[in-house]
Amino acid sequence: MDFLRPASWEEALAAKAEHPAAVPIAGGTDVMVEINFDHRRPEYLMDLNRIRDLEEWEVGADSVRLGASVPYSRIMEHLRAELPGLALAAHTVASPQIRNRGGVGGNLGTASPAGDAHPALLAAGAEVEAESVRGSRRIPIDAFYTGVKRNALAPDELIRAVHIRKADGPQQFSKVGTRNAMVIAVCAFGLALHPETRTVRTGIGSAAPTPVRARAAEEFLDAALEEGGFWDSGKVITPSLAKRFADLCAAACNPIDDVRGTAGYRRHAVGVMARRTLTWTWESYRGARRTTEGAA
C-alpha cells in the first residue's frame, strides 16, 4: 500500500489519473473501517485532507457550492438556513466525532444506499462537481447513483464539490434507526417544498439498491396541490391527500430484508415518515405564509 499526499487539487487529479485505483480518503469514516477490518487493501490511499479548499463552501444566489470535505458538523452549524434538509440529515450522521470528520463527498463516493446525505440532496436538488485531468463536469444528483455502492464517477475522477439548490421553502429529513443516536439508517426520508416552482421533491434512503426519489408521489402531490389551489390558499393538506402521498412514497421503495430491518417495515416506515415530513413542511409553509401576510 502506498500513501499519496497531494498538496493541491491539481496534484490530486494528476495522482488519480496516474493511479485510477487510488482510494481517496478524507474523513476516513468509511475507508478506515474497511482497512481496520481487512475488507480492503487498496494499492494507493490518497489523502485529501491537505486540500483545504475542499473544506470550504460558497453561498451563491441560487445554490450553495459545498466542498466535498466540509464536515457535517459545519453544515449543521453554518448552513441551516440555506440547506435545512441537509443540515437535519447531517445531524443524524453517526456521532459528533464522525460528524467532525465526515463530509458529503464521502457519502457520494461510497454511494451506499444508507448514506444519510442522499435523501436530502435528492430532495433539495443538487449537482455533483466531478473533475479529472480531462476536465470538470456536473453530474445531476438524479443521475449520480448507478447501483449498490456504485456511482457515475469515472475511474480518474474525484468529487470536488456539490452544488445544492438553496432552500426556497421548508425542508425536512427523518431517519429510522433502532437506536436514538449513532445508528445507520434502517431507512430515511427527505422532503423539500419548492414554492417557487410549486413542486415537491423527495429522497429515500436505505429502501432500494440506490437512494431514490419517489417520483410518482411527487407528481401526484404536485398535481394535487396545484389543482386544489393549496399553494395560494395555504390551506391544510387533507389526511387523504397525505395518505395517498405516503402510500406512493412507500411504493417507490424496493427494499430488502437484512439485519437492520425487514423490507415490509422499511416500506411502512417510509410511508409514515413521508406523511409526517409533509405535515411538518406544509405547516411550516403555512406558518411562513401567515407571517408574510401578517407583515404585509
Binding site: R5, G28, N36, Q97
Partner: peptide, 26 residues
C-alpha cells in the same frame, strides 16, 4: 476500530475525532 464507540476520541487540530478512523499519514 470502526468509529462506533468513541473510546479512541482525541482532538485533531482541536476537533474531537475517532483516532481509529484517521489514517496515520493524515
Amino acid at each position: 476500530e470502526q468509529g462506533e464507540c468513541g473510546s479512541c476520541t482525541v482532538r485533531l487540530d482541536g476537533v474531537p475525532v475517532c483516532a481509529c478512523l484517521v489514517a496515520a499519514g493524515q
